[in-house]
Design a binder for these strands. Structure first.
Lengths: 103, 103
DNA sequence: GAAAGTACTTTCTGAGATGGAAAGAGGTGG
DNA sequence: CCACCTCTTTCCATCTCAGAAAGTACTTTC
């Protein structure tokens, strides 16, 4: 029933949630969507990559270097487990962090 | 869309969730349910009290001193808001939860 | 071709949180 | 008087996180 600390940090939770929804996302898009600085996103991206939760792809758009983030299978599994754990913690209160399947 | 840091810390999230479900709970019950040390619970209890989220009641059972925790209205509102923010962050990922089976 | 810009990454720094151990505090029981 | 119960507080060592600034590696502009 532990809450994975790699995912729990608010900024990383938002990054991982975004990637779980968007599949692959550009560095600048994530940075601007979350409203964080370059250095913060770079560091959290590296942390997620080090955990094996995110794959970082580098390439070019025209001649400009770009970076994309994408959840790995492991990252998706960790996110799912994280949300399930959250749900177990919160559910007894009658509230829910995710929609009911029959919603 | 901020995640209230007073609630977000894993141990406090568990305390607050427990209190949201149980209304009022004894110090020892919370400590044993969460598996934390006396000092940790005492400190988090004080932090939640300082934030106005939890009321700490002291009394006796027989001749032994006991402490009870209870969510305040403010604490309940903060918890509700916290869970709603969590939902907003997590919801786009499309995760859902299967309702509890009975039995 | 020097300067400025793009797209990050890394380093430096400093504040704050967290938890365990251990010592306290205040009362009860043997 | 000493041990025990129920916390509270202090001490300590670790970790994390954010922002600023400098660095890397090119590309574009003047």
């Amino acid at each position: 029933m532990e809450l994975d600390p790699v995912i729990h940090a608010p900024t990383r939770l938002q990054i991982v949630s975004l990637l779980a929804a968007a599949d692959e996302a550009e560095f600048a898009f994530v940075r601007d969507t979350l409203g964080v600085s370059d250095s913060v996103l770079s560091k959290h991206g590296s942390a997620l990559e080090a955990a094996g939760y995110v794959a970082v792809r580098k390439g070019y758009v025209g001649k400009r270097p770009k970076t994309w983030f994408k959840l790995t299978g492991k990252g998706r599994a960790a996110f799912t487990a994280y949300v399930e754990n959250l749900q177990r913690i919160v559910a007894p209160s009658g509230l829910s962090v995710v929609p009911d399947e029959r919603g």
